[in-house]
Simulated assay, not measured.
Amino acid sequence: MFEYENQVPERKPHTFLGLDFSMNGLYKDSEGNEADYPRYYRKWEKKLEREQRKLSHMQKGSRNWEKQRIKVAKLHEKVANQRKDFLHKRSREIVNAYDCVCIEDLDMKTMARSLHFGKSVHDNGWGMFTTFLKYKLEDQGKQLIRIDKWYPSSQTCSVCGYKNPETKDLGMREWDC
């Protein structure tokens, strides 16, 4: 029967969702909804800068330096925990509602370096989000499909398959066939 006791059988998908990475909202799905990502790092950036500046002016190894280092670490941990909480909740909502999720296969490290979007890309946590989606979908026997980054999904009609030659701009995500 199954090789392992806890192995989940794959189910035939009935409901599908496509997710497109969005720099400011985490994603935009095929139904037109956005994640409305709160950008936790950007919210705490000023306070982090202030506390890190205080730390840099202190004598390394002193008690006050250690206290300040812990304060900075707690702020970073708070931002990370808020991000993880949001991503877990969004991924759970998606997994409960859909049997198959299709996402773009993007290299986020390259995107952060080459396009000078470092803080925004890393603040979104797209890679972590896709990891959460993957394991939650697999636990329920559902599918995560990664689409090649060069596939013209934004330029192809989802109903008839017509490829629009005019839409080359990345900002244009919707058009009428």
Rank of each mutant, 00 (worst) to 15 (best):
S153D: 05
W126Y: 12
T15A: 12
T15C: 06
S158R: 15
R39Y: 01
F86Q: 04
R146S: 12
D169L: 05
F86Y: 15
S56Q: 09
R90H: 13
M111L: 15
K109C: 01
E5M: 11
F117M: 15
K119R: 14
R63H: 14
Y98E: 00
V159M: 03
S153Y: 07
W175Q: 05
K109F: 07
L19H: 07
N24T: 09
E104W: 15
T130M: 10
F16D: 09
A80C: 01
E174W: 14
F129N: 02
V95P: 06
Y135A: 01
E51V: 10
R173T: 10
R69S: 10
Y98A: 00
N6P: 03
D29N: 13
A112W: 01
D99G: 09
P165S: 01
I103K: 04
T156F: 00
K43Q: 15
T167K: 14
D139G: 15
L144M: 02
Q68V: 00
F86H: 07
E34T: 14
M108W: 00
G32M: 05
R146V: 01
C160L: 10
T15K: 15
V121D: 00
K149G: 06
H116R: 11
S22E: 11
I103E: 02
N124G: 15
E51D: 06
I145D: 07
S114L: 15
F86G: 04
E138D: 13
H57Q: 10
S22T: 11
Q140T: 10
S56W: 13
N33S: 05
K109M: 08
E10I: 13
K163T: 14
G127K: 01
Q7P: 00
R63Y: 14
K71C: 04
C160M: 02
R90P: 01
F132V: 02
T131N: 11
M108K: 08
K67A: 01
K149V: 09
E174K: 12
Y37M: 10
S158H: 15
G25A: 14
T110W: 11
K163W: 04
K46G: 10
A97D: 12
G18L: 00
M23N: 11
M1K: 08
A80P: 00
H122V: 03
Y4Q: 06
C157K: 02
K43W: 08
M108Q: 11
E77D: 12
Y151P: 00
K142N: 00
F86V: 02
T15W: 04
T110I: 13
F129A: 07
K109G: 00
K136Y: 06
K134Y: 05
N81A: 04
D29H: 06
V79Q: 07
L137H: 02
G171M: 07
G61F: 07
N164Q: 02
K60E: 09
K109T: 13
L48G: 05
N24D: 13
I145P: 04
M172K: 12
P13H: 03
L19M: 08
A35P: 07
H57T: 08
I94D: 02
H57V: 02
Q155D: 07
Q7T: 10
T130E: 06
L115T: 13
W44E: 11
W65E: 03
D107L: 03
F86R: 02
R90D: 12
D107C: 08
P152I: 03
T131E: 12
N64R: 12
T110A: 13
D107K: 10
T156K: 03
G61S: 01
R50D: 06
H88K: 12
